[in-house]
């Protein structure tokens, strides 16, 4: 059985320190605390800088005596993170888990993993090969992926609003519909057309 009291405490603890760590954890839906979404900022001084990465968290029944299952839902170019599925290769999420770790500390470790890739123990062999052999290419690819996938929600919104305004919709309406569908241009357009 999941210790929900502890999860609640962790969420509170985490929300207190959002400014300091930049790490957020929120339940995916109001129905259950077993599925959460974590958000980490890309570490400064890395190709991931400026990006905001979302991680799907599923708490197993044995939590906190079993590690939480974490997976990037934002696409990342990193030797230890699958570029396809977002699976994370990190020891503390597997055999080195300890019940004294929390969601926040686990996410901090993931953040640390972003700034310190370990290509010797890769999750994604292609990325790891590139990291070792063509480091420059790796950096630019990672930057490109960050730019494309991890920043879309924040900076891209202005461009999308601009686009919709050019199509002839009023700016306020375009903005609100974009927000309501979570930043998806096509859905927003549909919504604007229908309503």
């Amino acid at each position: 059985m999941i210790d929900f009291a502890r999860v609640q405490k962790e969420l509170q603890e985490c929300s207190k320190d959002v400014e300091g760590s930049g790490i957020r954890v929120a339940p995916k839906s109001d129905a259950t605390l077993a599925r959460l979404v974590g958000t980490i900022p890309g570490p400064i001084g890395t190709p991931y800088e400026g990006g905001t990465f979302q991680i799907d968290i599923t708490l197993p029944d044995g939590y906190p005596f079993e590690p939480p299952k974490m997976q990037f839902s934002t696409k990342v170019w990193h030797p230890n993170i699958s570029s396809q599925s977002g699976a994370i290769c990190l020891d503390i999420l597997k055999d080195q888990w300890s019940p004294a770790l929390t969601l926040k500390t686990a996410l901090l470790s993931v953040q640390a993993l972003l700034s310190a890739p370990q290509p010797d123990d890769p999750q994604d062999a292609v990325v790891a090969q590139q990291y070792i052999k063509q480091h420059q290419t790796f950096v630019s690819t990672a930057q490109y992926w960050t730019e494309t996938f991890a920043k879309a929600s924040s900076r891209g919104i202005e461009e999308k609003v601009q686009k919709l305004v050019e199509m002839g919709f009023p700016e306020a309406q375009a903005r609100s519909s974009l927000e309501s569908v979570g930043g998806d241009e096509n859905l927003a357009l549909e919504k604007l057309c229908s309503g």
Partner: peptide, 27 residues
């Protein structure tokens, strides 16, 4: 809590001798 941790099953792939018998904080 500590008993739960030390008795937790090995299904999660945790190592009995190194992980479970270790202190969750300092290992």
């Amino acid at each position: 809590c500590i008993r739960n941790w030390r008795n937790s099953s090995t299904t999660s792939g945790l190592d009995v001798n190194n992980a479970l018998r270790a202190c969750p904080i300092c290992r």
